[in-house]
Design a protein around this nucleic acid. Structure first.
Lengths: 150, 150
DNA sequence: TCCTTTCGTTGGTGAGACCAATGTTGGTGA
DNA sequence: TCACCAACATTGGTCTCACCAACGAAAGGA
């Protein structure tokens, strides 16, 4: 039951956009599988990580830092708050805002997820050496930075 | 109105799966924009290219070579046939199959698309040097090959 | 002859990335 | 002080992809 090869013509294989999508697909599949049953989605991890590293943040701030749409942040915060992984409270200083704060339980879960996702990344990057992995993440990061948020 | 930076924490930025998705997003946006109004989608190009390089192919063959699901190939072939870019005919030797053939008009269109997509790739990979671009496509290709389909 | 596989097709699901509109609140300039 | 514009959270969509299950027809092997 090995993976079937994808024998696309060079014209297509050389296309960065095609390669990016084709490489992202298995990565997403593996992440989704690893997170299956935990009630956590890929985007949720980003939110928890941002909260852990930047401390309490408004939802708009979360949107900016994760690249998620503001409306999608709403749903994600709903879900994570219901799971007790973070808290949402109105900001006293600026009453337009909600301040989102990581709970202790949220932090614990984040650390577990760190492990899980590190393992998944290993799977995704399996065919590459350590040096090549660093090369790849560096190149991708530069593309991401260059295009920013559309 | 330049692109806003995405200031994700290192834990997230280092994630291959996150980077792949974040890099694929602008690529898809640019491709979609370039193809806008032409009635051609991203996946259609792959089909045309496969037909040009491998000659007449069954729909299942197209599915294997492009990585598209068989059911999605059906819709794409419907669309492209309606546009006169390819023809679908039952295979006399194997009556389960449809043989899909590129028309002259389809080939012309393909050559135009080659130009368009080459320009888009230039945009996507703008921040990278020629060497780096080759590095990136090579690394991505190895990931794609390693995970194959399914 | 059965049994399995392949093929095209239909119909549907779920996630993800978006976009528009609304009511509220802040901040600014006249 | 008032008017205006910008930012915020939220609702409620849309659209594209990737994918899956199931079907009847046809082929091929046991």
């Amino acid at each position: 039951m090995e993976a079937a090869p994808v024998d696309a013509p060079p014209r297509v294989r050389g296309l960065a956009s095609w390669l990016l999508n084709r490489a992202a697909a298995p990565a997403n599949r593996l992440v989704a599988r690893a997170l299956e049953g935990s009630g956590i989605r890929r985007s949720h991890y980003s939110l928890l990580a941002v909260l852990d590293e930047h401390g309490p943040t408004s939802q708009a701030g979360l949107s900016r830092r994760t690249g998620l749409d503001r409306s999608d942040v709403v749903a994600a915060v709903n879900h994570l708050a219901a799971a007790g992984l973070l808290q949402r409270a109105p900001d006293a200083d600026d009453r337009r805002r909600n301040v989102v704060t990581l709970t202790a339980r949220g932090r614990d879960r984040l650390l577990e997820l760190d492990e899980v996702l590190r393992a998944v990344q290993d799977e995704v990057l399996a065919p590459l050496s350590g040096t090549e992995r660093r090369q790849l993440t560096d190149l991708l990061a530069r593309i991401v930075d260059h295009h920013g948020a559309g």
